[in-house]
Structures are given as structure tokens and as C-alpha cells.
Design a protein around this nucleic acid. Structure first.
Lengths: 126, 126, 126, 126
DNA sequence: GTGGTCTAGACCACA
DNA sequence: GTGGTCTAGACCACG
């Protein structure tokens, strides 16, 4: 999986990495148990400080998305906890996004269509 | 409308204010043309510096949500531009939220139910 | 001639008035010697403080565009000084506008076409 | 590139900085991708507060002329969006400038000559 | 060391 | 009295 950093983004680099890995897991580009690049390897690959990659991995580990293997490798967690709900933070963000959609005249259906598109992403067959 | 700041939040104060006002406009707690508190008034009310409130108002003004006027103070804009779509930024955020929902085992229907709940907010009867 | 104020404009009201009168003179909607509304009259007409209209008239007078008549009326000056050039300030503004045009990829010809359009404005026949 | 502030100018300092940088980019004194002075560095250099420089940079960033990055500092954007037209605001200003030129007896050709002079600025040879 | 945020307090133009 | 600008100085997250 390739990680692409946006140049002048507001989002800090370590969080961009975290987000892309989360999205990779979510849409199946990263399978459960799959090995992730080493900290140093990924850092070199995208041309950033390895401390930054480390920070992203720490965050992902703390969130329960990856595990550090005893053989010194990093892997996608096999059984990610199924909470069946968003974090309080994520719910707040969603509320804000819906507000911005409404205020700009976007319909509920258009919004849901967007959600569906993202939900379908990475799903094969149907 | 009361603005409530979260203490240890990552989100800068000026952006919290901006977000809450956007949500207030979206769900009808702030009507088009309605007068907002003065820069200094709001600053005192929520116990922060007036420059910070000013920054929030500048942002809202630049985004087209409010108008500032030396005669009338600050008001919600009468005709907010209807773009009928989210910003590219907002779409990215939504994609991320959907990813996080999926990864945690949240169903499409539960997610849409949440969206609907936020969409209905502030709507009365009709 | 009707003066229309923009609601949330950056430009102060007195300067908006001044600008519109200058443009009115320039494109012939206001003839040399033509009587302008009284300060109080104009103030009432556009619903603002008469001090503000007074300020606009003072500015126009000082710039040599209007004269205050002895019979207490305000008139467009008969012989506006023909300097055949812009003020240093105006030149600076033009330089900035050209810069902004260039930076956004606007061609010299498109810019000049715009200039011509404004130059033709109010001209009758040819 | 040196930034020169006018002392008693009506134009706020942060906007003067913004204008000069835009003009610098436009006439090639600032190349795409070129590093701009740091916020604090520029502030010290021209003897103003760093918040003011920050404000100018924020404005330029929001307008899409520069990118700010904690790694790289501040740089001129590589690919400035080509809209091939002026903003509505800028068009209004141009209309006003043309009016002022006409009212002072400046010919269309003299005005266009001025425009051409500014358009040529920074162009070498070809 | 960089940009970003925030404060406390001041001054100004505008209306 | 309003928003807008600016200062001097502080702290923070990021890299």
C-alpha cells in the first residue's frame, strides 16, 4: 500500500499516515494480520523523519488497529474490537459535517449517497 | 445561543466557536439575519480574549456564513450560498469517518441512522 | 442617480458613496454642473447617518470632483482638472491588479478587453 | 526580496505584505517553490510583530499563493490555480480606476500603455 | 526551530 | 460602541 502525503495540508504528517492506514484496513487493501513496513522503511519510502512514522504507529497501536509482533514486525490486528459505534469525537465530527452539508443546501439523499459510496469502497462482488 | 468550549480539546478555540456557530445556523438556533454577540461581548461571556473571537468571526465571514458591519455588528448572512455539495476537505473527512465506522463493525444502516438524526435536528413538524 | 450600498462590504460606506458618484460622473450619468442631492436628502434616501454622506461629499470636494454652490447646493464641477494621469495611489492599485491578473493566468488581451469595456461605458454612439 | 512598508498608509500592514508578495510572485522575483522568510525572521527584518506577518501569510495561504509547512517553513506554491480571470472584487476596483482615469482626462491608450508596462514587468527577453 | 494559537491591553476608523 | 489592527510576549505541537 502506498502512502501519499499532501504537501501543505493542515493535517499533521503522523495523522495523515494514521488515517491512510486506517482507510487501507477499512477497505481491505490491508488484510488482518498483514505485515506493515518497518518504521525506518516507511520513513525512507516517503522521505520523512522516522520519529513521525513511529508516532503514527504508536497511535494506531493505542487505538487497537495494529499490533507490534514479537519478531519486531508491525502487523494489522487480526481481531479489531467491534464496538459497533463511533467514538464520541467521531460523532461530533459527523454532526459538524452534516451541519455543513445542510447549510450549503445539500440534501439528505445526496449526503447518504456519498456515505454509501464510501461504505461500498473496497467491497468486492456486492 | 450559548457557546461551550471544551477544555483540553485538540481543536483550537477559534475553530470551536466557528463550528458551534455553523451548527447553530444549520439547525435553526441562529436565524438568517440574526445578530450575533459582539466580539468583546462574546469574549467576555466565554472568558477568552477578544482577538480569538475576532478570528472565529473572520473565518465565518470568509466562509460566507456571516457578515460583519460597523453599523450593525455581526449578523448571520441572509442568503448563504447554496453549493449543494461538501468541500473536498469535508468529503475527505467523511471518507475517514466511514472508514472508522466500518473498521469498528458499524453497519451502513446504523451510520445512516446517525446521519438522519443529525439531518433532522432543528427541524420542527414539516 | 441611485446609490446602492453593499451590505457586508469591506469598503466603508462613505467611500462607497464617493466611488459611485465618481463612476457616475465618469460614465455621464452625472453631467457637469448637475445638482447632487442634499446631504440630508441622500442620507435619508439610503438610510444612513448624514455625517457619513457629509464625509463622502467632503472627500469629493477635496478631490475636485464637486463644488458646493453658494445657494447651498452641491453640484458636479464644471471643469474637472485634466491631469491626464492617475494618482500615484491609483497607479499602485493598478499595478497590483495587473499582478493578480497575471498570477491567475489572465492574458494581457483579456485584461485590456476588460479595460476597454469599462472605458466604453456610458459612451454613446461610438 | 525586500518588503518595504509605507508609513502612514491606509492599507493595513498585513495587507501591504500580502500585496508585495503577490507582486513579487507575479513578476518573477519570487519563483514557484521558493522559500519565503520565516514568520519571525520577516517580522524582525521589517520591524513589526510576528503576529502581523503570520496574518499576511495566512491570507496568502488561504488565497492559494503559498503553502506553509512545519517542515519546510513557508514556500511559494508550485502550481497556483489558473482561473484566467479577476475576482469580482478586483473587477470592481478596475472599473473604479478606469472611471478615475477617464474623469481626469486620461486616454484609453495611455491607460493601456500603463497596463502593458505592468504586464511586461519581470519578463525578460522572450 | 517552525508555524499556530492565545492573551492582555492598546489604538484607530467608522458610524 | 463596533469591528479591525497591532504589539509584546508566551506556550504548544510538530518535525
Amino acid at each position: 500500500m502506498i502512502i501519499v502525503l499532501q504537501d501543505g495540508s493542515e493535517i499533521p504528517v503522523f495523522k495523515q499516515i494514521r488515517n491512510q492506514i486506517v482507510m487501507g484496513i477499512s477497505d481491505g487493501r490491508l488484510a488482518p494480520g498483514e505485515k506493515l513496513p518497518t518504521v525506518r522503511g516507511l520513513a525512507e519510502e516517503i522521505g520523512i523523519n522516522s520519529m513521525t512514522v513511529n508516532k503514527a504507529y504508536q497511535l494506531l497501536k493505542q487505538e487497537g488497529y495494529i499490533v507490534t509482533d514479537r519478531r519486531n514486525g508491525v502487523r494489522v490486528r487480526e481481531e479489531i474490537e467491534q464496538t459497533s459505534g463511533l467514538t464520541a469525537e467521531a460523532e461530533q465530527e459527523l454532526a459538524r459535517l452534516v451541519s455543513e452539508a445542510k447549510i450549503r443546501g445539500m440534501s439528505r439523499n445526496d449526503f447518504v449517497a456519498l456515505v454509501d459510496a464510501y461504505f461500498e469502497k473496497g467491497r468486492q462482488g456486492k
